[in-house]
Design a binder for these strands. Structure first.
Lengths: 150, 150
DNA sequence: TTTTAAATCAGAATAAAATTCTTCAAATAT
DNA sequence: ATATTTGAAGAATTTTATTCTGATTTAAAA
């Protein structure tokens, strides 16, 4: 198993928050020169510690500032229904996250829409056409307090 | 209000999924030369459509592969208690997201830990020392189906 | 329809960053 | 104590980002 030291961890934490630093800047932060920092990052990428680099967009600017957590119960609990559900929700762009969960419901989805009107449309027209869904329960986000990916 | 056209939107969607493309590569994808693509991206950054660039890490590799959604009720609903709660949870690293929500509970938190043992420790020692919390309810993630940020 | 002005683009030129390579020093094993 | 391995620094090179100039298109005005 590949090892990871204190400096690697510091680089990961820095890049997790801002991946636009140059290797020169990063080198200064961890008191090394550019080449070992470059090699460390490549190693962290190749060993899977860093999965990818992405741009974070502003949901408000893109008309997606209204967040709802939507709990889902399936009609039945067989494999076909489950697979069909997964296949269907993958195609719906308003659903930005989905988890198979313990408890009263089967799935928890994070839904990102423009406003309540858009959410209503989403529930009627998008979820409404997913046959496998038995029932839903919506929890509305009033404000975002903390988000390490936001 | 600044405008945004079809090409801008395509660039945003591409960068949201992978911010490591060179402007040359992006230019090819949207059928333009490098300079206008470069200028478009700078404009999107300056106008706030792109908030920041980050590296996505592998939770499993970093001992954070066990995800729990934790619902919270406050003891009382006054401003001081609320502010104290927010201030406390900001410092707890296992809490990666937190939302003020509608419904039976006041807050919904996404918690990222190594395993059930770690979660138990988190509930006892971390949440246990947050005075403002009245009650909690945990929903465990069995598998992640979809995550545009993962 | 013609003219003017404002945007937007392509392509070259430049600056900055990433990446590679060589050498050296420290740590570890023999 | 010596050989071997590992990791680092700094220079050299390659690639990319960034700037600049001139041409073309678009939209508005005449």
């Amino acid at each position: 198993m590949e090892q990871i030291d204190e400096i690697d961890l510091r680089l990961l934490n820095i890049l997790h928050d801002n991946s636009k630093y140059t290797v020169k800047e990063l080198a200064k932060m961890v008191n090394l020169s550019a080449s070992p920092v470059f090699e460390r990052i490549k190693r962290l990428e190749n060993n899977g510690y860093i999965k990818k680099y992405i741009a974070l967009l502003d949901p408000e600017k893109l008309n997606r500032g209204f967040i709802v957590f939507c709990n889902i119960k399936l009609k039945q609990h067989d494999r076909n229904i489950g697979n069909q559900f997964v296949s269907d929700i993958m195609k719906i762009e308003e659903i930005v996250e989905c988890y198979n969960i313990s408890g009263d419901y089967d799935f928890l989805m994070k839904v990102s829409v423009k406003d309540m009107k858009h959410y209503q449309d989403f529930v009627f027209n998008k979820l409404g056409s997913v046959e496998s869904i038995g029932s839903t329960q919506s929890t509305f986000v009033m404000s975002e307090i903390k988000n390490l990916y936001g």
